[in-house]
């Protein structure tokens, strides 16, 4: 039983990180129908800021907000430079643009910083663990769970009580009508990107605090997981993204924990098989968005 609870804590921490990642994709998708594959590169940018802060001996408590800010600014810049000119283009155009942005950034990291992975200095505290109700939980796991809760509460408040948040919800439902009500498309879309940058920044800190290094291609794996989680939860639905992230985390951890040893080699195919199975039963995801079809403005 204790083992089960311990593994559940692990699953919560991983699922929380996936939820933040999937939310970042979903926020942008719900408004402009774009799956931003350059989302992972926002994480890489945040990772490099953490690395440079470590080299410059900037305390970690200052490095973290700097990294998150960098990710937010990069997301807004990305929207302004790359996505605004093609906003009225087809879904495929925007998708290809996002791949192009990701590749250009990767090449820039490789040429301007280093093709090799760079160590990130982290406070020793993050490698420690604490006892909570008889369970041994790593500090970075606790941080992951805590920041997921904080971010979800913040997002809920922002979407319900903030003008931009309310406008974003309206735009997600029907962008054309929302604009007729006087909502500025540019503000809403820039706001969505800023929010996704914020989520990417927080996820990046959690991600990098586990791996302790950053490399130019670091963003690929998390964006892939986020994509799976977002589809699993229901594309475009924020609650769905959270549910999908947690479900993916639970699937991965429980399979790694309880699959018999001789089956462990097939863990990933089995995990993805379960995802397919869920989608067969619920083709639009766990909590589908009310308006699946995002509109162009």
């Amino acid at each position: 039983m204790e083992l089960f609870l311990q593994q559940t804590a692990n699953a919560l921490a991983l699922g929380g990180t996936y939820a933040l990642l999937a939310l970042g994709l979903a926020v942008v998708f719900s408004i402009m129908g774009l799956i931003n594959f350059a989302h992972g590169e926002l994480m890489t940018i945040a990772g490099y800021v953490l690395m440079y802060c470590g080299i410059a001996s900037v305390p970690f408590v200052i490095a973290v907000p700097l990294a998150i800010t960098a990710s937010v600014l990069a997301a807004v810049a990305m929207e302004r430079i790359a996505f605004r000119p093609v906003r009225s283009g087809s879904g495929a155009t925007m998708l290809v643009t996002s791949f192009a942005v990701a590749m250009i950034l990767q090449v820039l990291f490789q040429n301007l910083i280093s093709a090799r992975s760079q160590p990130v200095l982290l406070p020793a505290l993050l490698s420690d663990s604490v006892r909570v109700f008889g369970l041994v939980i790593g500090v970075n796991k606790l941080a992951a769970i805590a920041s997921t809760i904080v971010m979800l509460v913040f997002l809920d408040w922002f979407m319900k009580h903030q003008k931009t948040g309310v406008a974003m919800r309206a735009a997600a439902e029907d962008f054309a009508v929302a604009r007729l009500m006087g909502i500025r498309a540019n503000t809403v879309i820039a706001g969505a990107f800023a929010l996704s940058g914020l989520l990417a920044g927080v996820a990046a800190v959690l991600w990098v605090s586990q791996r302790a290094s950053v490399d130019p291609l670091m963003g690929f794996m998390p964006v892939l997981k986020a994509f799976i989680a977002a589809i699993l939860g229901g594309l475009g639905s924020l609650r769905g993204a959270v549910a999908g992230g947690f479900l993916l985390g639970f699937i991965e951890i429980y399979l790694a924990a309880f699959l018999p040893p001789e089956m462990q080699e097939f863990r990933d195919p089995i995990g993805l098989g379960i995802v397919v199975l869920v989608l067969l039963i619920r083709p639009n995801g766990l909590i589908p968005s009310a308006t699946l079809k995002a509109e162009k403005v």
């Binding site: 490698s127 500090v139 796991k141 586990q210 791996r211 490399d215």
Partner: peptide, 14 residues
């Protein structure tokens, strides 16, 4: 890298 540091930290944290 990057698997080894993750693995090591997970083992020590556990």
């Amino acid at each position: 890298e990057p698997d080894f540091p993750s693995m090591l930290k997970a083992l020590r944290a556990a």
